[in-house]
C-alpha cells in the first residue's frame, strides 16, 4: 500500500470499529429514551418536569400575625421593613414587617390573630428531606456496620470458642433471613418491647429511625464481618509471625500490621456492601421512616406525576451510590502501597 493513501478498510481495521461502537452505544441510549417517550405519548401521559423542583425547594409565604389585641400605636420604617407597635390593654408588642406587605395603618384596631403582613421564605421540599433521611440513615448504619463487622470479623477468627461461636451464630442468623423480615422484627418485636420498657420507666420513646438504623447496621455488620475475616486471612501468616517475634502483642500486630494491609483488600467488597446498604434503606419506608423512596411515594400520590418522580428517585440513589464508589476509589488510591 502506498504512503498516504488511507482506504475504508484500513479505517475499519484501525479506529473504525471503535468509532462505530461508540456511535451505536449513543444510538441505543437515544432509542431507549425515545421509545419510553413514544410509549408514554401512546398512553397520553403528560410530562411536567417543571413541577419537580418544588419538591426539592419551594418558596413559601409566611404570614406575620398579631398575638395580642389593641391599637396600632406607631409605624416606624427601618430600611425596607416597618416596626409595627401594637398597644393592648396592659401589654405592648413590636413586630417587624416587610414594608411592601404591610396590611395595617396607624390607629387601626387589631384582634389577636390578625395578619399584619407576610414574607417569603425558601423551604426544603419533601424529596430533599427524604434524601437527607436516606443519607443520615445510611451514614450511621455504615459507621455502625463497620464497627460491628470489624469486631465480629476478629471474633470470627479468634481462638476463643465462645467468641468464635457467637460470631458464627450472629453471622448465620442475619445472613439466613430476609432484611425485610429483620426490619419488622427490629421495629415490631424488639422496638415494641424496648419502647414499652422505656415508657414503664417514664422515658421517651425511641423513634422508628433508630430501629431502622439498627436493622441495617446489624444486617450489614454480618456481611462486613465475613469481608473482614477474608481480608485478614488473605494476609500471609508470616506477617503476623514477624510482628509477634518482635515482641508485639496480638492486638498490636493486628492494629499495626495486619489490619492496614487487609484494609486495602477489603475496600472494594466493602464498597459493594455499603452500596447495597444505601439501596436497602429504601425498605425502611415500611416502618414509617420517610426516606427517599417513601417520600417519593407520597409525592406521587399527591402530584400524579409518577414517571418523572420515580426517575428522579432512581437518579438520586444513583448519585449517592456513585459518590460512595468514587470516595472508595479515592481511598484505594490514597492507601496504595508506596502512594
Amino acid at each position: 500500500m502506498a504512503e498516504g493513501s488511507f482506504s475504508v478498510t484500513d479505517y475499519l481495521r484501525t479506529r473504525g470499529w471503535r468509532h462505530i461502537s461508540i456511535f451505536l452505544f449513543f444510538l441505543m441510549i437515544l432509542a431507549v429514551i425515545g421509545g419510553i417517550y413514544y410509549a408514554t405519548q401512546k398512553v397520553e401521559y403528560t410530562w411536567r418536569w417543571y413541577r419537580i423542583p418544588q419538591y426539592f425547594y419551594y418558596h413559601d409565604r409566611v404570614e406575620i400575625r398579631a398575638e395580642i389585641g389593641g391599637d396600632v400605636a406607631s409605624l416606624v420604617p427601618k430600611g425596607d421593613r416597618v416596626e409595627v407597635k401594637v398597644r393592648g390593654a396592659d401589654v405592648e408588642e413590636v413586630y417587624s414587617v416587610p414594608a411592601d406587605s404591610l396590611r395595617v395603618s396607624e390607629g387601626d384596631y387589631i384582634y389577636p390573630g390578625d395578619i399584619l403582613g407576610s414574607y417569603q421564605q425558601w423551604k426544603v421540599g419533601i424529596l430533599l428531606k427524604g434524601l437527607w433521611v436516606t443519607l443520615e440513615v445510611s451514614i450511621i448504619a455504615v459507621f455502625l456496620g463497620i464497627v460491628i463487622g470489624l469486631f465480629t470479623g476478629l471474633a470470627r477468627i479468634s481462638k476463643n470458642p465462645a467468641l468464635r461461636w457467637t460470631a458464627i451464630t450472629y453471622i448465620e442468623l442475619v445472613r439466613g433471613s430476609p432484611l425485610l423480615v429483620q426490619i419488622f422484627i427490629w421495629y415490631f418485636v424488639l422496638g415494641t418491647m424496648f419502647n414499652t420498657l422505656l415508657a414503664q420507666n417514664g422515658m421517651g420513646q425511641l423513634s422508628p429511625l433508630w430501629y431502622g438504623v439498627a436493622a441495617l447496621a446489624v444486617f450489614a455488620g454480618a456481611y462486613v464481618a465475613e469481608i473482614v475475616r477474608a481480608g485478614i486471612q488473605s494476609i500471609h501468616f508470616g506477617q503476623m509471625e514477624a510482628a509477634r517475634s518482635l515482641g508485639m502483642t496480638y492486638p498490636q500486630s493486628m492494629h499495626y500490621i495486619i489490619l492496614p494491609q487487609a484494609f486495602r483488600r477489603i475496600l472494594p467488597p466493602l464498597a459493594g456492601q455499603f452500596i447495597s446498604l444505601i439501596k436497602d434503606s429504601s425498605l425502611l419506608g415500611i416502618i414509617a421512616i420517610r426516606e427517599l423512596t417513601k417520600a417519593t411515594r407520597e409525592v406521587v400520590t399527591s402530584s400524579l406525576q409518577p414517571f418523572e418522580l420515580w426517575f428522579v428517585c432512581a437518579i438520586l440513589y444513583l448519585v449517592l451510590t456513585f459518590s460512595l464508589s468514587m470516595f472508595v476509589q479515592y481511598l484505594e488510591r490514597r492507601t496504595a502501597i508506596g502512594g
Binding site: H236, G238, Q239, E241, A242, A243, S245, L246, I257, P260, Q261, R264, I337
Partner: peptide, 13 residues
C-alpha cells in the same frame, strides 16, 4: 530475641 525468616516477612505496607 530477634528472628529472621526464610521468606523475610518484611511488613509490606
Amino acid at each position: 530475641m530477634g528472628m529472621v525468616f526464610q521468606s523475610f516477612n518484611l511488613f509490606r505496607h
